[in-house]
Design a protein around this nucleic acid. Sequence first.
DNA 1: GCCGTTTTCGGCCCGACTGTTTTCAGTCG
Length: 572
Amino acid sequence: MKNEDVAQLLFEIADLLEMQDVEYKPRAYRQAARNVQSLSADIEAIHERGELDDIDGVGESIASKIAEYLETGELDYLQQLRGDLDLDIEALTAVRGVGPKTARTLYREAGITDLEDLEQAAREGRIGEIEGFGAQTEANILDHIERAKRGQERTLIGRAFSRAEELHDRLDDAEAFDRVQIVGSFRRRRPTVGDIDILATASDAEAAMETFCGFEDVAEVRSRGETKSSITVPPDDLQVDLRVVEDRSWGAALVYFTGSKDHNITLRDRALDRDWKLNEYGLFDVSDVKDEGGKRAGEVLASETEEAVYDALGLAWIPPELREDTGEVAAAAEGRLPALVETDELRGDLQVHTDYSDGSHTVREMAQAADDRGLEYVVITDHGPETVAGGVDGDALADQQADIAAVNDDDAIDVTVLHGVEANVTADGLDIDDDWLERLDLVVAGVHTPPDDPTDRLVEAVESAPIDVLAHPTNRLLMERGGIDYDLDRVVDAAAANDVALEINAQPERLDLDWRAVKRHRDAVDFVVSTDAHATEELDYLHLGVAQARRGWCEASDVLNTEPLDTLPIDG
DNA sequence: GCCGTTTTCGGCCCGACTGTTTTCAGTCG
């Protein structure tokens, strides 16, 4: 997939054009870049079908540039724009507070071309001397470079979860606040979040800001205004933004601050078509307003609830996980939004580890924990011998089978424990004897160390071995490494043809398969959501995996472990 | 550069905050 590469090229063109004060084109290139980024299909396949200009925001000109890049690997127009200036615009604008215009000034006035130059100039006090810049700007730039270096511009949602909820509860309990809700990418359940956005109502906004910025564990108050403030909290300086609105604007503000940006733009376009205006204060009819400078100009059509705002726009309420501008607005208009799978519809967990391999708890402890969480069944799937030291082989599997039988015989534990394995896909097949593969209730298989030809190995494994579930299909680790570079479409085809389900792994650093791929292949293949728990408390990750299934437009019928045990389509 | 059941030309989402200057450009979401 070259989608991300193409998007980055278009973003760079937009930045370079903006540096030259070109009007409107940057917006067009960014829009095209974002739309390419959120495509669910492979852009090379789209190009082969000659349908590049069917992509929203891509017209004749941008289509020909994408085609040139895909065919030659280069783009003449971009080379021209770069010209002689050897500028790492992507790195520079990645520093918060530095945009294209600032990058231009830094280049012209101080010869800064990359992050290293920028840091050195800031340390030497040369930035503050540039006209229009000051000591504060210089300090901010240094601070944000540090941040970028520490790689903490984003946080795994699973890691931010408990802190976000704790902050929510603290504000909710505070006297100054009335309604409090977490919004932004957290509410949309993106795999990683840049900050925590909180929306609130308060009769006295000033007092609310005082409370928020005055929490004793605030590391830094980054900005503080009458309706909007921003702080960072330890241990890793997670940024938390608070926006206070009036009660009557609650619904419109929820829509606005939950986003995504592209979803909001599509909603606003829809409002504009009707001669209305949509902002965080409400949906307004501005057809009779000549000068619509005011924030609340015109007659308010809806604002108090999200449902009312969507309804006034002729749309069904759209679940936050879908608000990524990937077709959800059209679906809401036509009444064909999916009935998304819910966490409490999940009846079992199909990948759980114990101390037989690298888990922390015993079979009985994991079973008890699954029972405590109301699950009907849980499958113990320890690693085979090739993945981790002490992985299960034949003898260990026999012992484990006896353990499982004992737990199942125990009336104090209601959950049904099944016996499976997480086998490693290697160049020589799976690392578990064929005999055991046949006897186990469930075979989960996954790549842990990518072989030379991962596509062939995976297709071969899926076609020839009795695999039920392909675990963490791309083996990505969020913010650490991308997935294996292989042809997912071929593997999906093979999986679909052989009744192998794809896993949506709920571990915070995995959330693999990615939601975009889930959406793309939802009609072709079945999914399971598994926690891959290595300790009892990790069984609580299930909702994170379900959230990614929801982002991939999955209904309960798309997720096998919503089935009760007796109809679960696994070959025992 | 893109887009169009009011347009093939003339528009292009919108508001808060910062830093620096003194009325606003730039950035962000």
